[in-house]
Write a protein that binds this DNA or RNA. Sequence first.
DNA 1: CGTTACCTGAAA
DNA 2: TTTCAGGTAACG
Length: 298
Amino acid sequence: MPELPEVETVRRQLEPLVAGRTILGFRVMPGAERLLRGRSASEIAAQLSGCAFTSVDRRGKYLGLNLDNGQVVVVHLRMTGSLRLRPAGHEAETFTRAVFDLDGGDQLRFVDVRKFGTIDLVELMQEALPELGPEPLSDDFTPDALWQALRGRTQPVKAALLDQRNIAGIGNIYADEALFLSRINPEAPAGSLRPAERRALHAAIQRTLRDGVAHGGASFRDYTDVDGAEGEQQYFVRVFRRTDEPCDDCDATIRRIVVGGRATHFCPRCQPVRQRTRQVKSTRPPRTHNAGGTLKPR
DNA sequence: CGTTACCTGAAA
DNA sequence: TTTCAGGTAACG
């Protein structure tokens, strides 16, 4: 559920809350063992005990909680995961799956209804990460970097944006929003974008992600921050989950289709299917603008 | 490439 | 009862 802006919001909140705090214990609730991906809670707990958090990094949708022994706790929230910092006596959230006991009597709780989220303990954050594309808000994410990720691909551009190997951190909300802002049809083949469209998409990706961060992320269903508070970005979306509503820009009816297996929202008037320029063999010479007039020799 | 599985609850 | 869900990995 959380995408880059939601995860970045958590990172920003979490860092000052956990930096300098020592871990006294760690446990996983019964039935949630899978979140450690095969490692045992007692093994992890033994390694964590006595360590202190130093800082919190983010890479795509992954969080890296750095420890003072150089190790990193890598967390992925997947669809419904969230982190909460609570006093130990605070009422337990119903779907608490794992708990870090910290000095000072607080707990860092990993709450996750659907149990898709993961926690890894590694020497380097990289070890817990799959192949990930560039950070879309970093300096090296240029229009050219975007094009390197999309060129040659025949899949729908929406699907390409969701593939974390192409660009890290974009999910379903921000893919739809970026395509709307850049007026690109979500089903357009990724490699078919023209230079102006690539520049527009690059700018739209950065704008929608920055807006998302500025508004503390989007809380459509489950996402809440470290205090349990909701974000505000859901009040600013242009197309996401606005099926059958009028487009802000042109009043046409927003449509919902499925692209790459995911619900996709777009404005059919602002994001029309571009006419394919015919590459088919033709027996006739291509038409020219001045057909019948004077032709420049080539 | 699209589809299915992983889980569970909320909404239709 | 059925469908749907901010994600990803494993299918065919």
